[in-house]
Amino acid sequence: MAPAAEGSGSDPVINYLVRRLLALVPVALGVATLTFAIIHLVPGDPVVAMLGETAAPADIVGMRHQLGLDRPLLEQYAAYLGGLAVGDLGESISYRKPVSRLIAERFPATIELAAAGMLVAVLLAFPLGIIAGSNPGGAGDLGAMGFAIVGISIPHIYLGPLLMILFSLDLRWLPLTGRGGLEHLVLPAVTLGTALAAILARMLRQSLIRVRESDYMRTALSKGLSARSALVRHGLKNALTSVVTIIGLQMGALLSGTLITEIIFSWPGIGRLLISAIGARDYPVVEGCVLTFAMTYVIVNMATDFVYAIVDPRVRIS
């Protein structure tokens, strides 16, 4: 189902898309500038990190020259932006490979993890939110919201090992670490998705409680629909709009969560690449990874706006 188009002439959806895509340019520029400034301003030398403390000073100077790190910062910045304009993210200092290739190698793993985390979040949040929202104050509500509080409170770094101990060490159902088949994805996805599930469940509960008091719900009940049918057929769709918005906004948290989750589960994604690049002061890789995360976040939010229009007929793309 495509977002509804209104009027004649140029397609408003296309117009909207073009506008949003054009808006990516200043966002990318801002992110690139900020990342460049921060990573170059913090202490640390990529050449020393690469060659080691025992390297001859002449070699350090030579390597710095070879990498262009001895040029004025503004010149380096201009070169970086010039590269970005033609889609060149530069070359990794420590890997000696194009950054775009490094990111392309790892991006699928991160997206796989983030998508699975989102799926887990939605699969957990919807039943919990519906149970809680359909009978506020009841046992189901207490249980679901208890889960939500625990889910929000447990950091990934603690939940991950707990799940490993239970499902890998004790039950021996799932592997501890690494990327492979579906079995490798379960624990990282649950670790990543639990906090988001808790947030979504709470949000859905609130929305359902709000719509329960709406006139159309009363009308539905007066027509003879059972409370459950009315909630599922009429209330849920209306309650979804705010939940979809939150899903988009929480994508940032989900992506940043992949950093920790990838470290815990030895998941070969961009998060691990970024962490090790920060340690090695591999400037091009840090800049490329942060830009990729930022762009992913913005694009997901664009997609969310489209979904928003689908679940809420009052919203039109224009």
């Binding site: 090992p161 490993m164 101990i165 890998s168 060490l169 592997p175 670490t177 690494g178 030895s266 962490i275």
Partner: peptide
């Protein structure tokens, strides 16, 4: 040689026999 950055996970992998 498997690269496992988290020390807790390294301990768990030993305990699991992996």
């Amino acid at each position: 040689f498997k690269i496992v950055p988290d020390p807790t996970v390294r301990a768990l992998e030993l305990a699991e026999g992996v």
